[in-house]
Each structure stands twice: as C-alpha cells, then as structure tokens.
C-alpha cells in the first residue's frame, strides 16, 4: 500500500500510520503517551545534536537510512563524551512511498536504537508531493560522562587512534551505484561501546570525532584548524581493507576522503596511547583500531607515505566522484 497526502493530514490515516508502524517498533512508556512533547529525566550536563538523512538508495549492503539515522546522531553525541539516551525522529515522506518500506526502516531503527541503548521518545510525520522518497531527521540527547572533550583541545604529542578501516560506507554505496560485485558492507554502527570503554579505562581523552562525510582527511584538517596544531599520520598504519582498496583502484577514489558511518578517531595523551588502543580494540566495532599518528607543532595535515615521502592532505573539495583520468 502506498503513502498518500491523507497520511500526513493529522487525521485517522496519520494515527494509523503512527500506531501500526512507529509505536509498534519504537514502543516505550514515554512515546506511548503520545503527548505533545516528551518529559525526560536527565542528570547534569547534556550533549544535544541533530542530523538529517537523505541517502539513496534507501537500503544498501550493511544498512539502510533508518539505521544511519539512529547511529549518525548517537555517534555525534558520543563524540562529546556523552552517553546517548533519547532520540526524536521526524519523517518527511513523499507520496508513493510504500508502507512496507517505512515499516522495514522503522524496524531497522528499533534494532539500532536497542543496540545503542537509546529510546525514540518523540516523532513527527509529514507527507509531501513527490515520487516515493523518504527523508529522516533525528535529534538526540546524551548525558555527559566525561567533560572537556573538544576539537580545540588537542595537544602536541597526543596520539591519534583510528577505530577501524576507512571508507567502507562510501565504498558500499559506490559499489551498488557502479554495479561492482564485492562483499563490502557499510560500517554503519553505534560507537557507544568504544566511548564507554575509553571513559571506563580513565583515558584523558582530549578529542573524539566520527569519520563521516569528507573522510579522515577532512576530520584531521578540522582538528588542525580548531586546535591550531599540526597533524602527522602514517600511511602504513591506516587500516584499509583489501576490498575497499581494490574498489578505490577501480574507480579512482581515495579512501582518505571517503565516508564511514561507524568509525571514529580519539586523540589521547601519548602516555595513555597503548592503554587507550587496547580499550578500543576490546570494544565492539573497535577490533581493528590502530594508532595512526600524532599531534605535532605547526599547522595542516601531513601524511608520511609508504614510500617515506611527505604528502600534505587538504580537506575534500567538491564531491568524491569516480574518475577514469
């Protein structure tokens, strides 16, 4: 059955959609009250963020727009040293979308929320003219468990830990679009366990960032700029799977500029680097973590290549499109 304008009119069809799909999957005592707003119990300082998700295709190897919508916001909260607790979910649905598709997406969001330990406590649905597209906004709240974590807090000598392999999400999407067969899956995942592990191990984390659009090179440039420092990384230490490397070679892409959806960097004092690395590796989704470089004097981001040459990495300009030249 397809969505039409009456599903967004606030009447019976809207109510049915909410009950039969959203309440069914997101079920919790706060949401179920269906009040105009969620009333929440929060302790101390909070981290608060929002993000919108417009990916196509809606379903791809390793994930879907729903899972992305939960993990993306959960991860942004975690990066501030906060434990995520509550999300909202707003849906903008174009006429013609299948109800079964929305049901699948909502189920995926439920599973992702459970894994991340969050509840979806408020939501909204709008229907617009169109051709079946689905767009999701999520906002989220988390309780700060470790304060002082900031992109402007990196210090000379700090070690940079990357939680796992680069480029997987972008590679999964490109493989589908360009019809190249492989087993690459999006790495869409919540980073809660890694962050909890670092905090519980008493690591003096200076900064954490998830590696999303623009890739690792863009994130490192943001750090360099905000902390007024230099960043030096080693190509030989970058975890990149063979399959992603192969895909990049075929399409002329660069993994340093490709999006992940379940990877992060943690910048920690050098004295705690090994302890932090083990904490990350013990955690779910952090098994392939590596120390990839350090914070140095100066400015900008430099990579020492496998040939021991020096390559300056700028931010991503434009879109990372496949090349033949």
């Amino acid at each position: 059955m397809k969505i039409n304008m009456s599903h967004g009119s606030g009447g019976k069809q809207t109510g049915d959609l909410i009950n039969q799909i959203f309440l069914k999957h997101f079920d919790n005592h706060i949401l179920n009250k269906l009040e105009d707003a969620a009333v929440l119990d929060i302790k101390g300082k909070i981290a608060y963020t929002t993000d919108s998700f417009v990916v196509t295709p809606l379903f791809f190897s390793g994930g879907d727009i729903g899972k992305l919508a939960v993990c993306g916001t959960v991860n942004d909260i975690c990066m501030m040293g906060a434990i995520p607790k509550y999300l909202t979910a707003g849906f903008i649905i174009e006429e013609g979308a299948e109800i079964e598709t929305i049901d699948k997406i909502a189920l995926s969001m439920k599973l992702a929320a459970e894994e991340a330990g969050v509840k979806i406590v408020a939501g909204d649905t709008k229907v617009i003219e169109g051709r079946g597209g689905i767009y999701i906004n999520t906002s989220g709240i988390g309780e700060i468990a470790k304060s002082g974590i900031s992109i402007s807090n990196c210090q000379k000598g700090d070690a940079i830990i990357l939680s796992g392999s680069l480029g997987d999400h972008h590679a999964a999407i490109m493989s589908e679009r360009m019809e190249i067969e492989n087993n690459i899956k999006s790495d869409c995942a919540p980073l809660v366990s890694i962050v909890k592990s670092l905090i519980e191990s008493n690591i003096e984390v200076h900064c954490m960032r998830d590696v999303t659009r623009g890739g690792l090179a863009t994130v490192l440039n943001e750090i360099s700029s905000a902390s007024s420092c230099g960043v030096e990384i080693y190509e030989a230490f970058l975890p990149i799977s063979d399959e992603v490397r192969g895909l990049c070679n075929i399409l002329g892409l660069d993994p340093l500029y490709m999006a992940n959806e379940g990877k992060m960097i943690a910048v920690v004092p050098e004295s705690q680097a090994e302890t932090a690395l083990h904490a990350v590796r013990r955690s779910k989704y952090g098994e392939n973590a590596q120390i990839i470089g350090r914070i140095v004097d100066g400015s900008g981001v430099t990579m020492i290549t496998t040939l021991q040459g020096s390559r300056i990495l700028d931010v991503l300009y434009g879109e990372g499109l496949p090349r033949i030249c």
Binding site: L307, G309, R311
Partner: peptide
C-alpha cells in the same frame, strides 16, 4: 600524464 601527477603527489615523491 595526469595520473602520474596524481601518483607523484599520493606518494609524496617531490619531497624525496
């Protein structure tokens, strides 16, 4: 060749 230009930068060859 532009692909050589790209590879030269990717490997940091000028710095060597």
């Amino acid at each position: 060749c532009g692909t050589h230009t790209s590879s030269i930068f990717k490997n940091g060859i000028r710095s060597l």
